[in-house]
Design a protein around this nucleic acid. Structure first.
Lengths: 113, 113
DNA sequence: CAGGATCCTCGAAGATACTG
DNA sequence: CAGTATCTTCGAGGATCCTG
């Protein structure tokens, strides 16, 4: 066990910090479909500001997950490996959101009563 | 395609919001190992405050992902399905953190110079 | 021991205006 | 078009104190 997510100072937390940024998953997911230019990506993702997209891309670039080649943002080899768990999450999301919202509604009306 | 993660107002974003909370993944991962009491969980997870753990658990409870049975927090059936993508993420994290940090260091010293 | 209530900090993210 | 710079807001999360 080289990296235990439970250890507070564990470097594996880096990934979690990465994912905990609002747009990381969406951007990775997006570039996983196909490499895109800045504007394209922003247009595809609903409601992201240019600033946030810039920040997200640069953070990912720093971690070696994406590169900008001739104005086109692309996943690196490392980035593509992240695509798998991220897509798994996206698929789970698309599959179980209804259940999440149902559960939410049940608690809204009162579970025990 | 019922839920498209790209749509800004898409309910699938619910999951992403969930995951974007700092402790969600760690807590799910933890309860995935075995059901635990509050104190146990807090002890296992390094550096989480009681307040944050409470908030995280209650949020997950609202979404039907965990339940508290006789003082013991447990994943629901739905929660267990989330365990898979979350564990995939954790495994990725444990496997590739070194590469992340290496890439970071390369940028720190200066990539182009 | 398992939280609830309150106060505070810090940083992510938006809005806007500007630049190469 | 693809960012950068500045200002501001908002909320997650920590610290502390209190309670059943």
């Amino acid at each position: 066990m080289l990296h235990d997510v439970f250890l507070a100072d564990c470097p594996a937390r880096t990934t979690l910090d990465l994912v905990s940024h609002r747009w990381t998953v969406v951007v990775i997911h997006g570039l996983g479909i196909e490499p895109m230019r800045f504007g394209e990506l922003q247009a595809r993702i609903g409601g992201i500001s240019a600033k946030s997209l810039t920040e997200t891309l640069q953070r990912l670039e720093r971690y070696g997950l994406v590169v900008r080649l001739d104005g086109t943002w692309t996943l690196t080899t490392l980035g593509e490996t992240l695509l798998e768990p991220v897509s798994a999450l996206a698929r789970w999301s698309e599959a179980h959101t209804d259940e999440l919202l149902d559960a939410w509604d049940r608690h809204e009306t009162g579970t025990s009563s």
